[in-house]
Amino acid sequence: HRQALGERLYPRVQAMQPAFASKITGMLLELSPAQLLLLLASEDSLRARVDEAMELII
């Protein structure tokens, strides 16, 4: 289940942060499945989480 969510998330994360897409997707997969579904449904929520992840990385 998580694998399938990751496969759906990755291209969207890659479009926002290509250099760190794998790392960010891995970080996002730590969230609950319900939270992941919310990110897939909301571009704004996904962008906010990706921005948060980038702050942790750099």
Score class of each variant (00 low, 15 high):
residue 48 A to S: 12
residue 16 M to E: 02
residue 38 L to S: 10
residue 26 G to C: 12
residue 55 E to F: 10
residue 31 L to Q: 06
residue 58 I to Q: 10
residue 56 L to N: 11
residue 34 A to F: 13
residue 58 I to D: 12
residue 26 G to I: 13
residue 41 A to I: 10
residue 4 A to M: 13
residue 53 A to R: 02
residue 22 S to E: 15
residue 25 T to M: 15
residue 49 R to S: 11
residue 51 D to V: 11
residue 53 A to F: 05
residue 51 D to C: 06
residue 54 M to F: 12
residue 47 R to P: 01
residue 8 R to P: 01
residue 3 Q to R: 07
residue 25 T to Q: 03
residue 44 D to P: 05
residue 56 L to A: 11
residue 38 L to W: 06
residue 32 S to A: 13
residue 10 Y to V: 04
residue 9 L to H: 01
residue 48 A to V: 12
residue 42 S to D: 06
residue 20 F to K: 04
residue 7 E to S: 07
residue 5 L to N: 04
residue 6 G to Y: 14
residue 14 Q to W: 07
residue 11 P to H: 10
residue 43 E to R: 06
residue 53 A to D: 01
residue 30 E to M: 05
residue 41 A to G: 13
residue 18 P to Q: 04
residue 22 S to I: 13
residue 24 I to R: 00
residue 39 L to P: 00
residue 2 R to C: 10
residue 22 S to A: 15
residue 34 A to K: 14
residue 28 L to G: 00
residue 55 E to C: 06
residue 25 T to W: 05
residue 20 F to Q: 04
residue 24 I to N: 00
residue 57 I to R: 03
residue 1 H to N: 12
residue 46 L to F: 08
residue 46 L to M: 04
residue 22 S to W: 05
residue 57 I to P: 01
residue 42 S to L: 04
residue 1 H to V: 09
residue 15 A to L: 12
residue 57 I to G: 02
residue 19 A to G: 13
residue 19 A to S: 12
residue 18 P to Y: 07
residue 49 R to Q: 13
residue 5 L to M: 14
residue 30 E to A: 06
residue 11 P to M: 15
residue 18 P to M: 07
residue 12 R to C: 06
residue 45 S to D: 11
residue 10 Y to S: 02
residue 6 G to F: 15
residue 34 A to L: 11
residue 57 I to W: 02
residue 34 A to I: 12
residue 46 L to N: 00
residue 26 G to F: 12
residue 51 D to P: 01
residue 33 P to V: 10
residue 40 L to H: 01
residue 40 L to A: 02
residue 55 E to K: 08
residue 55 E to D: 12
residue 28 L to F: 06
residue 13 V to Q: 01
residue 36 L to D: 00
residue 10 Y to A: 14
residue 7 E to G: 04
residue 42 S to G: 06
residue 46 L to P: 00
residue 26 G to H: 12
residue 21 A to S: 03
residue 54 M to Q: 03
residue 41 A to W: 06
residue 57 I to K: 01
residue 19 A to W: 12
residue 35 Q to Y: 15
residue 6 G to D: 04
residue 18 P to N: 06
residue 21 A to F: 03
residue 31 L to P: 00
residue 4 A to E: 15
residue 53 A to H: 06
residue 1 H to E: 12
residue 44 D to V: 12
residue 27 M to N: 02
residue 30 E to W: 05
residue 20 F to D: 05
residue 43 E to S: 09
residue 55 E to L: 15
residue 35 Q to N: 13
residue 8 R to N: 08
residue 53 A to E: 02
residue 7 E to H: 06
residue 7 E to P: 03
residue 32 S to E: 09
residue 47 R to S: 05
residue 29 L to C: 04
residue 14 Q to G: 04
residue 50 V to F: 01
residue 29 L to Q: 02
residue 49 R to D: 04
residue 8 R to I: 15
residue 37 L to D: 05
residue 14 Q to P: 02
residue 57 I to V: 03
residue 24 I to K: 00
residue 45 S to M: 12
residue 35 Q to D: 06
residue 48 A to M: 11
residue 55 E to N: 10
residue 36 L to G: 02
residue 20 F to S: 03
residue 29 L to V: 07
residue 17 Q to E: 04
residue 34 A to G: 11
residue 53 A to W: 06
residue 35 Q to R: 06
residue 36 L to P: 00
residue 33 P to I: 15
residue 23 K to E: 09
residue 48 A to W: 04
residue 30 E to H: 06
residue 4 A to R: 09
residue 55 E to I: 05
residue 23 K to F: 12
residue 34 A to E: 15
residue 9 L to E: 01
residue 21 A to E: 02
residue 7 E to T: 10
residue 25 T to S: 06
residue 45 S to R: 14
residue 57 I to C: 05
residue 45 S to L: 10
residue 12 R to D: 03
residue 8 R to L: 15
residue 2 R to H: 12
residue 16 M to V: 07
residue 42 S to W: 03
residue 21 A to K: 01
residue 48 A to L: 11
residue 29 L to W: 02
residue 23 K to L: 08
residue 32 S to T: 14
residue 36 L to A: 03
residue 26 G to D: 15
residue 35 Q to K: 07
residue 40 L to I: 04
residue 28 L to V: 01
residue 8 R to T: 07
residue 10 Y to W: 11
residue 55 E to Q: 14
residue 55 E to S: 11
residue 23 K to T: 11
residue 48 A to F: 09
residue 49 R to N: 04
residue 24 I to C: 00
residue 7 E to M: 11
residue 2 R to I: 15
residue 33 P to H: 14
residue 31 L to D: 07
residue 18 P to R: 06
residue 4 A to P: 15
residue 15 A to D: 11
residue 16 M to Q: 05
residue 27 M to Q: 04
residue 8 R to W: 12
residue 38 L to F: 14
residue 3 Q to H: 13
residue 24 I to G: 00
residue 15 A to C: 07
residue 15 A to W: 05
residue 38 L to K: 08
residue 23 K to I: 13
residue 27 M to E: 02
residue 4 A to W: 15
residue 56 L to D: 10
residue 8 R to E: 14
residue 39 L to E: 02
residue 7 E to N: 05
residue 18 P to H: 08
residue 25 T to C: 05
residue 26 G to A: 11
residue 45 S to H: 11
residue 45 S to T: 14
residue 11 P to S: 14
residue 12 R to K: 14
residue 12 R to G: 05
residue 39 L to S: 05
residue 6 G to S: 13
residue 12 R to Q: 14
residue 7 E to C: 08
residue 20 F to W: 09
residue 19 A to K: 12
residue 28 L to I: 09
residue 52 E to R: 04
residue 22 S to L: 08
residue 20 F to L: 10
residue 55 E to G: 14
residue 21 A to W: 04
residue 32 S to F: 07
residue 11 P to T: 15
residue 56 L to H: 07
residue 14 Q to E: 14
residue 36 L to E: 01
residue 56 L to V: 13
residue 42 S to M: 03
residue 40 L to W: 03
residue 54 M to H: 08
residue 26 G to Y: 08
residue 52 E to D: 08
residue 43 E to F: 04
residue 28 L to C: 01
residue 29 L to T: 01
residue 25 T to F: 10
residue 37 L to I: 13
residue 40 L to C: 04
residue 2 R to G: 13
residue 17 Q to P: 01
residue 44 D to H: 04
residue 23 K to W: 05
residue 16 M to L: 10
residue 13 V to M: 01
residue 53 A to V: 13
residue 1 H to W: 07
residue 5 L to F: 14
residue 21 A to Y: 04
residue 27 M to F: 07
residue 4 A to N: 13
residue 14 Q to T: 05
residue 22 S to C: 10
residue 40 L to R: 00
residue 27 M to C: 04
residue 15 A to T: 09
residue 11 P to I: 15
residue 40 L to Y: 02
residue 39 L to K: 00
residue 56 L to F: 06
residue 20 F to C: 05
residue 16 M to T: 03
residue 25 T to N: 04
residue 52 E to N: 04
residue 46 L to K: 00
residue 11 P to K: 15
residue 31 L to T: 03
residue 15 A to F: 11
residue 16 M to R: 02
residue 16 M to S: 03
residue 2 R to N: 15
residue 40 L to N: 02
residue 14 Q to I: 12
residue 3 Q to K: 09
residue 49 R to C: 07
residue 43 E to A: 08
residue 17 Q to A: 15
residue 21 A to P: 03
residue 8 R to M: 12
residue 3 Q to P: 07
residue 20 F to H: 12
residue 51 D to L: 12
residue 24 I to W: 02
residue 2 R to F: 09
residue 55 E to W: 12
residue 1 H to L: 09
residue 29 L to A: 02
residue 2 R to P: 14
residue 12 R to V: 12
residue 45 S to V: 07
residue 33 P to M: 15
residue 41 A to K: 05
residue 14 Q to C: 08
residue 48 A to E: 12
residue 43 E to G: 05
residue 57 I to F: 06
residue 21 A to R: 00
residue 51 D to K: 15
residue 26 G to M: 10
residue 4 A to H: 14
residue 27 M to H: 03
residue 48 A to H: 07
residue 52 E to F: 08
residue 30 E to D: 15
residue 25 T to G: 01
residue 47 R to H: 04
residue 20 F to V: 03
residue 44 D to K: 09
residue 38 L to M: 12
residue 40 L to S: 03
residue 51 D to M: 10
residue 18 P to T: 06
residue 22 S to Y: 15
residue 53 A to G: 02
residue 54 M to A: 09
residue 14 Q to S: 09
residue 42 S to F: 12
residue 33 P to K: 10
residue 2 R to T: 14
residue 2 R to V: 15
residue 6 G to C: 13
residue 17 Q to S: 11
residue 35 Q to V: 15
residue 1 H to C: 11
residue 26 G to K: 14
residue 32 S to V: 07
residue 25 T to P: 00
residue 52 E to W: 10
residue 7 E to K: 09
residue 34 A to P: 13
residue 16 M to H: 08
residue 28 L to M: 04
residue 10 Y to F: 11
residue 33 P to R: 07
residue 8 R to F: 14
residue 29 L to S: 04
residue 9 L to R: 00
residue 46 L to V: 01
residue 17 Q to I: 11
residue 56 L to S: 14
residue 11 P to G: 08
residue 24 I to S: 00
residue 39 L to W: 02
residue 49 R to E: 06
residue 17 Q to M: 12
residue 1 H to T: 14
residue 42 S to Q: 05
residue 13 V to F: 04
residue 18 P to G: 06
residue 46 L to R: 00
residue 35 Q to M: 12
residue 57 I to A: 02
residue 50 V to G: 00
residue 58 I to P: 03
residue 30 E to F: 11
residue 14 Q to D: 07
residue 42 S to A: 06
residue 35 Q to G: 05
residue 1 H to Q: 07
residue 31 L to F: 12
residue 24 I to P: 00
